[in-house]
């Protein structure tokens, strides 16, 4: 083999292991799932032995009120969680963007909740929400306000609170990084022109942070659709279907009810939703890049 052939092959050699693994354990399974979603598929069978039922799984899901319920719960959960986390996270970043002693210690404390296992987060919150031994109800009882049925009547809200606790720091860290990389000149200019703190935030900081904020928001939204373990440990989807988000329903349909075909169809619905979000995010990124490129050219043209 000549030197140039080896040269041309080099990138493929570097890529090969990653490609092989991603094809075997990611792309092939995804294709397999799409194939299986058109079949009456049971985990004890090999997929070749199953019968083709066309869109059967998709149609039965479309008409299944429980599936609708689960979809609504998922949307409620994801949208509320992202909305609150964005506001609190960005607010905290604006508040704490100062030259502060011990800022790095503070950031370390804040990222702890998202580093520990979701299973453990669920465990901690389930304990704190416990009707009799939980810290919330004990405190409420002590003040004389009576106890609240956290994981019963208010299960969805309780689950949402736990997620906000765990993931607000994510938004906080990313917006703080964005804030600290803003061009100092723009902020200086505003300050010299006599803009108040609020004016600086509303007219300079937030508009300049917007691109990062939108990407952060979309990333978090995509992640919010993946949440599963925290809710599984806290409520197991109950009471009733009140906290059974889509991801949880998929896993139960597959492992408990052993209806792989239906679970596959459900996974495809979820994938389509996430695909749309991802495409929006990537398109937005591309747009930003093009915009930056155009500005750079304009500046160069002016200089030249």
């Amino acid at each position: 083999m000549s030197y140039s052939t080896i040269n041309r092959l080099t990138p493929y050699i570097f890529l090969a292991p990653a490609l092989v693994i991603m094809v075997i354990a990611l792309l092939y399974p995804l294709g397999y799932m799409v194939f299986g979603s058109f079949r009456d598929w049971d985990p004890s069978q090999s997929i070749g032995e199953t019968s083709f039922i066309g869109l059967g799984n998709y149609i039965s899901l479309w008409n299944d009120p429980n599936f609708h319920e689960s979809l609504i719960v998922t949307l409620k959960f994801a949208i509320t969680v992202v909305f609150v986390e964005m506001i609190v996270g960005v607010g905290l970043a604006l508040l704490l963007d100062r030259n502060l002693r011990g800022m790095s210690v503070l950031r370390t404390m804040f990222i702890l909740p998202m580093m520990i296992a979701p299973v453990v987060v669920g465990l901690i919150w389930r304990y704190m929400y416990h009707p009799s031994i939980g810290i919330f109800n004990q405190t409420l009882e002590k003040i004389g306000l009576g106890s609240v049925d956290w994981l019963g009547q208010h299960a969805l809200l309780s689950v949402i609170i736990a997620d906000i606790w765990q993931w607000t720091p994510f938004i906080f860290i990313l917006s703080l990084a964005a804030l600290q990389s803003l061009p100092r000149s723009a902020l200086e200019a505003a300050r010299i022109d006599g803009a108040s703190g609020w004016q600086q935030i509303i007219y300079i900081k937030i508009p300049l942070m917007m691109p990062v904020l939108i990407v952060t928001c979309l990333l978090r939204l995509i992640d919010a659709f993946k949440v599963l373990e925290v809710i599984l440990v806290m409520t197991e989807g109950g009471p009733g279907l009140s906290t059974e988000i889509l991801a949880l329903r998929i896993s139960r349909t597959a492992t408990e009810f052993r209806e792989l075909g239906v679970a596959a169809a459900m996974s495809n619905y979820l994938l389509m939703l996430l695909l749309i979000l991802t495409i929006i995010m990537l398109a937005f990124n591309k747009l930003q890049e093009m915009k930056a490129e155009r500005q750079r050219r304009a500046v160069e043209a002016e200089k030249g």
């Binding site: 990611l26 799932m33 993946k226 949880l248 991802t278």
Partner: peptide, 27 residues
Amino acid sequence: VSGTTLMVRMVPPAVLLVPVFGLWNNE
């Protein structure tokens, strides 16, 4: 390759569960 890598980043474990469960057990 780089486009595919970007896209599969959003696949949730719950979606992988179904096919992986079937493949790893039977195929």
